[in-house]
């Protein structure tokens, strides 16, 4: 087993662990403990301690990781689908229109995701869904450009040209000849997009754009615990360790594919 496979396995296990959080956490991530042990350090009943409102930090992080990862995954899928759709349109459209698409995308590329999210909030409700849409939209130009380079390269290769000459239908050509060669690159690209989306979703939640401040998500947990930074720094350190850990695994599992 090579290193990348090992990290992929670890990443899979982390994702599985995070999704278990939707069904089981040691304590209720939302219920407050009124016995007065707020901001108490780690103990057997509270593995990572208790936050300033008397809630179990480990349970909050567990469910929060689940939420963050799910939001990141949905954003990634939406992003890839939209970018592929635009690429399809750009390839099929008449020259002047594809030129328009290309310049529109380069303009879009310059606008940071946070501003796109803020603009979306002008006419969408605050909430996890809006953050997912913003993260998906924000990375579309990047994904589009990457996919376009991969596609143009594949189109010019000898085996695709040969297959065309032999008269294969376009769907079969894509499925049998292009896709197997494209797959490793697209898989690496989607891992990168997932890392971006996760960073963006939690960043936007950290800005307080997720709506409900108690919604357990790694970014919004960091925002809430910011006020305890001076009293108990671990309240802020732990959620970040989990977030960075997930991101590090994503990076390690794609590093050798390039």
């Amino acid at each position: 087993m090579n290193r990348t496979r090992l990290f992929e396995l670890l990443l899979g296990l982390i994702l599985l662990w995070a999704f278990v959080g939707f069904f089981y956490t040691p304590l209720d991530p939302l219920s407050q403990d009124y016995t007065g042990n707020r901001l108490s350090g780690p103990s057997f009943s509270h593995l990572l301690g208790v936050d300033g409102l008397g809630r179990d930090l480990f349970s909050r992080i567990w469910l929060g990781s689940g939420h963050s990862i799910l939001m990141g995954l949905v954003a990634t899928v939406g992003n890839l689908a939209l970018a592929a759709l635009i690429l399809f349109a750009e390839q099929k459209a008449p020259a002047w229109f594809s030129q328009f698409i290309l310049s529109f995308v380069s303009g879009w590329l310059a606008i940071p995701v946070i501003f796109i999210a803020l603009l979306l909030l002008v006419f969408l409700e605050q909430g996890p869904g809006t953050l997912v849409i913003a993260a998906a939209l924000g990375n579309v130009p990047f994904t589009f450009r990457q996919l376009r380079v991969l596609w143009l390269y594949q189109k010019e290769t000898l085996y695709v040209q040969a297959s065309l000459v032999l008269g294969s239908q376009s769907w079969n050509l894509f499925r049998r000849t292009i896709w197997p060669n494209l797959k490793p690159d697209v898989s690496g690209l989607s891992k990168l997009i997932f890392a971006f989306s996760l960073l963006e979703v939690s960043g936007l939640a950290f800005l307080g754009l997720i709506g409900d401040p108690d919604f357990p998500e790694l970014g919004s947990i960091l925002r809430q615990n910011k006020s305890y930074l001076l009293a108990d720094p671990w309240q802020v350190i732990w959620p970040g360790i989990f977030l960075s850990g997930i991101l590090l695994l994503v990076q390690l599992s794609r590093s050798e594919q390039e």
Partner: peptide, 18 residues
């Protein structure tokens, strides 16, 4: 790409200020 900038900020506060 791995460390969220807002968490890095907190770590710097913990080290530099605390």
């Amino acid at each position: 790409v791995v460390i969220p900038i807002f968490w890095l900020g907190f770590i710097l506060i913990v080290i530099g200020s605390l």
